[in-house]
Simulated scan of single mutants.
Amino acid sequence: MQEKPSMLRRRFLAGTGAVTVGATVASGAAGATSSDRSESESERKDRATVIAHRGFADIYPENTVAAFEQAVQGGSDDAADRRGADWIELDVFPTCDGEIAVFHDTELGDLTDTEGVLYETPASEVFSAEVLESGQTVPTLSEAMEAIPPNVGVNIDIKDGSPDVQFGRVDDPESEREDWKWLETVVDISTSYENELLYSTFWEGALATIRDIDPDLPAAYLLYDSIQEGLDVTDEYDTEGVNPPLEMIYGTPFFDEDAYEEIDIVAEAHARDLPVNVWTINTWYEVEQLIEAGVDGLFLDYSEIVRWGGLQS
């Protein structure tokens, strides 16, 4: 198993005051040449880590090999004509016969030409399913990892692999351990590559299982309906990141005061020396407001929305 990488902790980019998450190479030019990556951090305009949500799902057929290959093309300068991903976010499910699929939805039918619940469907059917009439099929986790260069981080978003697991917090995570056994395969596959990794999930049972498999695996809880609960889980499992939705970022125009406690999650995370990676960002204005608020990573469906602020800096 890999050591817990200290690079997942916050670090400030020289001369900018912006913060990012990941290895030095992860904040460098994804898909660029080594000479491109040698430029000093103070010269770059990678003001926050660009995380390609499902491989930039608004540009490419989501969670496909082609999407991942395209998402990493480009540089780390926000003002560049093409901004490449520093990290790739992808989703994982098990098939009914134990293979690991990269796919977001429980039901195959909304995004592919195949019907059925993914974890109740055999691998032969899952991996032949065409995604959004793109000519691309649902990939295995191994195929996805092969498509992502080793200098690009991978956020593995763990979905439920059973109808018997509880979303969010659970009274006895150990009671679900057998239902999450498939995560051993996820870990075996993903850690055989050189990429920095972060395992994230909405399911406490999955987070507990990752910690059980190896306490040093980098993990993050995906916050959803309570900031305080998310921070409690973060503390309990000593996670390496805090991944909240856009509406939880206090002090921005997007904060939903009717839904969430008035807690400054960025300040709380940074007090714990943890990066804040916010999902899912769709406009340049959201990017600029979040960077101003001090967030570290941005889950984006479209990379070029960082361009306006890059041109101004």
Rank of each mutant, 00 (worst) to 15 (best):
M1F: 09
Q2D: 07
K4D: 11
R9W: 02
R9C: 08
R10S: 09
T16Q: 07
T16S: 15
A18C: 13
V19S: 13
V19G: 09
T20C: 11
A23I: 05
T24Y: 15
T24L: 15
T24A: 15
V25P: 00
S27F: 10
S27M: 12
G31I: 04
R37G: 00
R37N: 14
S40Q: 12
S40C: 02
E43L: 10
E43K: 13
R44F: 00
K45T: 15
D46F: 09
T49K: 08
T49W: 05
V50R: 06
R54H: 03
A57K: 11
A57M: 08
I59Q: 14
I59V: 10
Y60S: 03
P61K: 02
T64H: 02
A66F: 11
A66L: 10
Q70D: 11
G74K: 01
D81V: 06
G84S: 02
G84N: 05
I88Q: 05
I88F: 01
V92D: 01
G98M: 07
I100L: 09
I100T: 13
A101M: 14
A101T: 11
F103N: 01
H104K: 07
D110P: 12
G116D: 11
E120Q: 14
T121F: 06
T121M: 01
V131P: 04
V131I: 09
S134R: 10
Q136V: 05
T137P: 03
P139M: 00
E143K: 06
E143F: 10
A144M: 06
I148W: 10
P149L: 05
N151E: 15
N151D: 15
V152Y: 02
N155Q: 03
D157V: 01
I158T: 01
K159D: 06
D164E: 15
F167R: 13
F167N: 02
E174G: 00
D179K: 12
K181G: 10
V186M: 13
V187G: 09
V187Q: 08
Y193L: 12
N195R: 04
L197R: 08
L198N: 10
F202E: 01
G205C: 09
T209V: 05
I210R: 12
R211P: 05
R211W: 04
D212N: 13
D216E: 14
L217V: 03
L217E: 04
L217S: 03
A220R: 04
Y221A: 00
Y221G: 01
L222A: 11
D225Q: 13
I227M: 07
Q228M: 04
Q228A: 05
L231Q: 01
E236F: 04
Y237Q: 05
E240M: 08
V242R: 10
N243Q: 08
P244G: 08
L246T: 07
L246M: 05
M248F: 07
T252R: 04
F255Y: 15
D256K: 07
D256T: 03
E257H: 12
Y260D: 00
E262P: 15
D264S: 07
A267R: 14
H270R: 09
R272H: 06
R272E: 07
D273H: 12
L274T: 06
V276I: 11
T280L: 13
I281L: 01
N282S: 14
A293Y: 05
G297C: 13
F299Q: 06
D301E: 04
D301S: 13
D301H: 02
E304N: 14
G310Q: 00
S313N: 10
S313A: 14
S313P: 04
